[in-house]
């Protein structure tokens, strides 16, 4: 019996020692790991995530672990619930509207940037934002096939009878591009004109999809002649599909701009490493990866030279703004009313 008790104590002791030793190892690994919350398209094999991870890990002792998020609002809500237990060190994919609408649900750290980073001029106030760092951007416009017979060079041209039910748009409540279009209309036209235009546009719309991808799928499926998308979309088809039959339309009205930001929640665990990662994302190598994989434009100068993106027109763009929540709510409510009463 005594032997048995000794045996049990020894086994138990060994297991306990292993557990604590293993626990220390896990802690050491965790100390060197940063958790980066990003969208599936960023993390996917074809996205910039895997290459950025590899390059960052080569240059630093820290390991990157991506955590996929499907919706920014929900991800931030979860970080808020978890509070100190949250593992999020970096959050990617925050756009101008998220900054106003959801980012205030949690506290963020100010990010110290490496000196010498020279942002492209178009970014305006986004470049000097202390809490959120821009890492890619692109003007947005309508994308069409070159075979489109209707000539479109302004918002007004989109109301042509031939384009009735032929324009794929996004729902501004659920889709950032959808909200970009709404903001574009309100920025380009005075209040009453904008409302009148939206009413007319609701007759032209083929659909208001819940996401950019759904609307682009409709366009690719020939359900619509035009889709509101990024001006870089035709570059994707040119590079990946070797198809040069798509074009982005330049309008007389300056185009809205979508900017994606990175932020560090106050509850981060490896905060300095997180800051290193964000600064790494602003390096020319990382910017090139983001441009080529995310099909968005780089935020620093000279990166797109000698690439397919260099051939892109330089579009006249609207200044980037962080809209007030009340303004966005007012625009969205107006759109909801129009859609309920006038549109599909």
């Amino acid at each position: 019996m005594r032997h048995f008790i000794v045996f049990v104590v020894l086994v138990f002791g060994a297991l306990t020692a292993f557990y604590y030793n293993h626990g220390d190892q896990v802690k050491n690994i965790e100390d060197k790991k940063i958790h980066v919350y990003a969208s599936s398209s960023f993390i996917a094999k074809w996205g910039p995530g895997p290459e950025l991870k590899e390059l960052f890990e080569k240059q630093n002792i820290f390991k990157v672990e991506f955590v996929e998020i499907s919706d920014m609002a929900m991800a931030i809500q979860k970080i808020s619930f978890e509070n100190d237990a949250s593992v999020a060190d970096v959050v990617l994919g925050i756009d101008q509207f998220d900054v106003t609408r959801v980012a205030n649900k949690i506290k963020w750290r100010d990010i110290e940037r490496n000196s010498g980073v020279k942002f492209v001029e178009n970014l305006g106030p986004a470049a000097v934002e202390k809490t959120f760092v821009p890492y890619d951007w692109a003007p947005m416009s309508f994308v069409a096939r070159k075979s489109l017979k209707t000539s479109v060079s302004s918002l007004k041209d989109l109301l042509a009878p031939e384009l009735k039910n032929k324009i794929a748009l996004q729902d501004p409540r659920t889709s950032s591009p959808g909200l970009q279009f709404l903001a574009w209309v309100f920025e380009s036209k005075s209040g009453e004109d904008a409302i009148k235009y939206l009413k007319q546009m609701s007759k032209q719309a083929h659909s208001f999809s819940p996401s950019w991808s759904a609307s682009y799928g409709l366009f690719k499926n020939n359900q619509s002649d035009l889709v509101f998308s990024y001006v870089t979309s035709p570059v994707y088809h040119l590079v990946e599909d070797k198809d040069d039959q798509f074009l982005s339309i330049e309008t007389t009205e300056p185009l809205p701009v979508q900017v994606e930001f990175a932020g560090i929640p106050q509850t981060c665990k490896n905060c300095e490493a997180a800051e290193m990662f964000i600064n790494f994302m602003l390096s020319p190598e990382a910017q090139k990866i983001i441009m080529q994989k995310n099909y968005m434009l780089p935020v620093i100068a000279h990166v797109k030279e000698a690439t397919a993106f260099d051939a892109l027109k330089v579009y006249k763009t609207l200044p980037i703004k962080f809209y007030e929540q009340s303004k966005l709510d007012k625009w969205i409510n107006t759109w909801v009313e129009i859609r309920k009463n006038e549109g599909i």
């Binding site: 398209s41 996917a44 074809w46 996401s211 682009y216 799928g217 690719k220 499926n221 088809h237 990946e240």
Partner: peptide
């Protein structure tokens, strides 16, 4: 599949 659907890879 969703990854393909939500990118350009229909």
């Amino acid at each position: 599949t969703e990854g393909f659907l939500s990118s350009y890879r229909l």
